[in-house]
Simulated scan of single mutants.
Amino acid sequence: MSVSLHLAQQPDADALLSRSPLAALVGMLLDQQVPMEWAFAGPLAIARRLGGDDLDAREIAAYDPDAFAALLSAKPAVHRYPGSMAKRVQQLCQYLIEHYDGDASALWRGAADGKELLARLTALPGFGAQKSQIFLALLGKQFGVRPTGWRAAAGPYGEDGCHRSVADITDPESLAAVRTHKQQAKQAAKSAKAAGTGKAAPGRTAK
C-alpha cells in the first residue's frame, strides 16, 4: 500500500515518514510537548545530521549517547527537550534491535489481532497507552495495517470519520479539524477541573 503522510507539513520530511516505519515511530515518540509539525520533522533532521536521508536503528543505537544528544541539541533543536528525547530515541532503537532485529515494520507484521499489536506498541520505550492507541490508529487508517479488531484496540482514535489525532490528518482541512478538536478537549478539561475545585458561586461560601 502506498502511503502519503502529511504530518510534518514539509514534503521531504513527510516523504521519509511515509517510506520509513522507523521514522514514523520516531516521529510518534517525539510527538509530545511540542507542535506536531516540529515532532514529525524530527526524523528527517536526525537523518540529515547523521549524514543521510534515512534512519537506521543499528546506527542510532550504537551512537555515543553524549554525541547523539549533542546532535539533537544543535540549533535548531530537534525537540524542546533534545537531551531526554535523544535518550528515548536510542532506547527505542535498542529495543527494536533486541526484539525485532532492528526492523520497525516487524512490530506489526504478523500481529494476530489489534489487541496483540497494541500490546507490542505499549511495550516500546516511550510509548504509553494513549500514544500506542494513536499510532495503532495511524497504522490502520493510513498504512493499511488492519489486523482483526484494530479499531476497537485503538479506542476512540480508531473511530471512522473522527478528527482526534495525527491518525486522522491527511490534508490541511483535516489538520484544522484535529486542532479544533484538541482545543475543545483542552477547554472541556479546564472547565471540568474548575468545576471540581469546590469554588463557590459568587455570593456563597465554599464548604
Rank of each mutant, 00 (worst) to 15 (best):
Asp64Met: 08
Ala61Phe: 10
Pro147Glu: 12
Leu55Lys: 12
Lys87Ser: 10
Leu50Met: 13
Gln133Leu: 07
Thr170Val: 15
Thr205Arg: 14
Arg120Ser: 07
Ala45Thr: 14
Leu25Ala: 12
Arg179Phe: 03
Ala129Met: 14
His181Asp: 13
Phe40Gly: 05
Val166Gly: 03
Gln9Pro: 04
Glu59Gln: 15
Lys199Val: 03
Arg120Tyr: 09
Phe127Pro: 09
Ala111Tyr: 02
Ala61Tyr: 07
Gly203Thr: 04
Leu17Lys: 07
Asp160Gln: 11
Gly114Ala: 08
Ile60Asn: 01
Gln130Phe: 10
Asp12His: 10
Asp12Tyr: 03
Leu30Met: 14
Ala15Gly: 10
Met1Thr: 06
Trp108His: 13
Ala69Tyr: 02
Lys141Val: 07
Pro35Ser: 09
Glu37Pro: 11
Leu124Val: 13
Ala8Leu: 02
Ala24Thr: 13
Ala200Gln: 08
Ala23Arg: 05
Leu117Glu: 00
Tyr100His: 15
Asp56Trp: 02
Ala8Met: 06
Gly42Ile: 00
Ile46Glu: 13
Ala153Lys: 00
Asp64Glu: 15
Glu159Lys: 04
Ala154Met: 09
Gly149Met: 07
Phe135Ala: 06
Thr205Asp: 11
Arg164Thr: 05
Gln10Trp: 02
Tyr157Ile: 02
Ala111Ser: 10
Gln183Ile: 02
Lys115Ile: 09
Asp101His: 08
Glu173Ile: 01
Lys131Met: 08
Ser20Phe: 04
Arg58Gln: 13
Leu71Gly: 01
Gly198Asn: 07
Lys75Met: 05
Ala200Met: 00
Tyr95Phe: 15
Gly155Asp: 10
Gln90His: 00
Pro172Ser: 03
Thr180Ala: 14
Ala119Phe: 08
Ala119Asp: 15
Arg88Ser: 13
Val3Met: 02
Asp64Ile: 05
Ala106Lys: 14
Met36Asn: 11
Gly144Trp: 04
Ala62Glu: 15
Leu138Ala: 14
Gly140Phe: 02
Gln142Cys: 03
Ala194Cys: 04
Gln187His: 11
Lys182Asp: 12
Leu175Met: 09
Arg49Ala: 04
Leu5Pro: 08
Leu55Cys: 06
Ala67Gly: 12
Asp14Val: 03
Arg58Val: 12
Asp54Gly: 12
Asp12Ile: 04
Met28Lys: 05
Leu121Ile: 00
His79Trp: 04
Leu71Gln: 02
Leu50Gln: 13
Gln133Asp: 01
